[in-house]
Amino acid sequence: MVEYVIETRDLTKKFGTEIAVNSLNMHVEKGKIYGLLGKNGAGKTTTMCMLLNLARPSYGEIFIFGENPRSNPDLYSKIGSIIETPGFYENLSAFDNLRIVSKLRGNYNSEDILRALEIVGLLDSKDKKFKNFSLGMKQRLGIAAAIMHNPEILILDEPINGLDPIGIIEMRDLFKKLVHIYGTTIIISSHILSEIEVIADVIGVMNKGVLVEELSKEELQDKMNKYVEFEVSNLELACNILDNYGLKKGSDYVISAFAEKYDSKTYNSLKLFSHLDKKAEFNRLFINSGIDVYKLNLTEESLEEYFTELIN
């Protein structure tokens, strides 16, 4: 049986009459990276705030390790988090800010602080005041505070905001390492699709407060459309060949919208969505019928295209 570290049932948040999160049923498996994807204002941060007890749900339930955290608030100590931009005390150094966090957690250990600073690459800046930090450094400090106590769950809201490309790769590797070595479960939100695609094991897509899709990376691969694109000299004849083969126009293959509307000689491509394994055979049939094939391309729909299609 799958063990869910975090589960929500009909989780709803209303601000006045506006529904920010609507009946969210989320399932986060242990030791996985759950990518929460959505446009700005989709409800990702509000969902995370409810998971962290920063916002009160209007309706619904949250279970952390199978327990309701309202009856066992100690569960929150197993979570590390970043929500939006990290907030720290401007007048204090990176070390002192982490000291505050660890003192509040009741597990102050200077070694842990130094180790966390080293992991995020801020050891050399440990005595620098927070007000003098760049946005990327602030984000790194937020990550250090989140991982310092070796939490079992990490809830990270847009953690790569402000990081440089090297920083993004470093943090991505760190998150993967935490999952693979320590079995940490991570919920990570982003509106940067490529980031979620690279890092997440499970993807939840939110739109207008609704979780419209929750699927594993494998399921996503299956769902994303693959097609073979042919660019030919005679589109009409190529369509006839496919029709005679038993393929249906519109479902098994489509021709370029421009070809239909304007000129099939200039716009001469067709997309084949089924019988992809027969692409070589179709190519042979086209050539034997005197059709020149200029291009034969196996294309896979990107997450971006899938996401756009889903939320529209």
Partner: peptide
Amino acid sequence: TLKLIMTAP
């Protein structure tokens, strides 16, 4: 910093 204190928890 309120969220930092509250999530400590």
